[in-house]
Design a protein around this nucleic acid. Structure first.
Ligand SMILES: [Zn+2]
Ligand SMILES: [Zn+2]
Ligand SMILES: [Zn+2]
Ligand SMILES: [Zn+2]
Lengths: 156, 156
DNA sequence: CTTGACTCTATAGCGACTACAGATTGTTAA
DNA sequence: TTAACAATCTGTAGTCGCTATAGAGTCAAG
């Protein structure tokens, strides 16, 4: 199959497949005479694996490690467990952070009930004060609250 | 005061201050003869405002909008409330997403209790299956789980 | 007068894609 | 056969919010 079909069956944009190849997550596939990439079932499975990991918000570096274990079936999988535990920790840490944020935002929101002139808005005034310190997400890798293209295109 | 002191009193890296200036969040300040930026209390307040917003994980575009209200004190602040409600929605959506993720990861983790050879690891096998569909974060802007430099340097 | 701390601009990198432009290849219909 | 069209190719630049250099210039203290 060509790249378009692989994209279709795995639900992955074509450009993303080529990106994974450049990043070394997928091996360079064979080509047709006309230089088109050709894939088979093994490529489908490998890409599905990567996409499943990404759907769990693992970093590509984490996926690379898991792929090394997939490629070395005789190896002991203890480090897989360790990696997964760490990643669960990344997610849990970000959840705690966002819950604290949600509280701060909710309390900020209460400072302005009826709209009035900006000069006396309780929200704008509060924001001019230095922030109370919050959670710092030391060593985690789950970030941000504003979805980029990834989030916007996720279901297509 | 020069940029270093502004950085110190607001807890902001010097490069970040220059970045905000390039992005139009801070106006170009006056300069000394030797071309050094000079700031006063009004700059401290404006930068503190930006940093407070950022500590609440607002996007710079959201901050820009709030700054416009700060700069127009006679304007009605209704849109401030709307923006804040939307942002609270962004955070809440990301929390729901991460909670679902945490569950999926925890259930995945249970597929391997004692370490064995990778070929028979329940985790690696499960990851080879297509992912169950999860939340998609449509329209939100809170993303990722893997902290970059921002997260790592947050407390310095 | 030299050292050293500070500041300046400009540029490149991060992660995980996304979105082109411009060329080529393959498929189908007139 | 040929012309249109879809699919694919490579390469490059953009996204966001910074961060991290390089290489030059400015300034105060000793
Ligand atoms: Zn992780
Ligand atoms: Zn208000
Ligand atoms: Zn928001
Ligand atoms: Zn295992």
């Amino acid at each position: 199959m060509k790249i378009g079909e692989l994209a279709r069956v795995t639900g992955t944009p074509v450009e993303t497949i080529r990106y994974y190849e450049r990043e070394g997550l997928l091996a360079d596939p064979p080509r047709t005479e006309g230089n088109f990439r050709i894939y088979d079932e093994s490529h489908v499975e490998r890409l599905s694996f990567v996409r499943h990991c990404r759907s769990l918000d693992m970093a590509l570096d984490e996926v690379r490690i898991l792929l090394r274990f997939k490629d070395a079936p005789a190896e002991n999988c203890g480090d897989v467990n360790t990696l997964l535990d760490a990643h669960i920790g990344h997610v849990a840490a970000r959840i705690r952070e966002l819950l604290a944020l949600e509280q701060q935002l909710t309390s900020l929101r209460e400072r302005c009930h009826e709209a009035r002139d900006a000069a006396h808005c309780g929200i704008l005034n509060e924001l001019s004060q230095p922030p109370r310190q919050g959670a710092t997400n030391e060593g985690g890798h789950v970030h941000g609250v504003h979805g980029g293209a990834r989030a916007r295109n996720a279901g297509k």
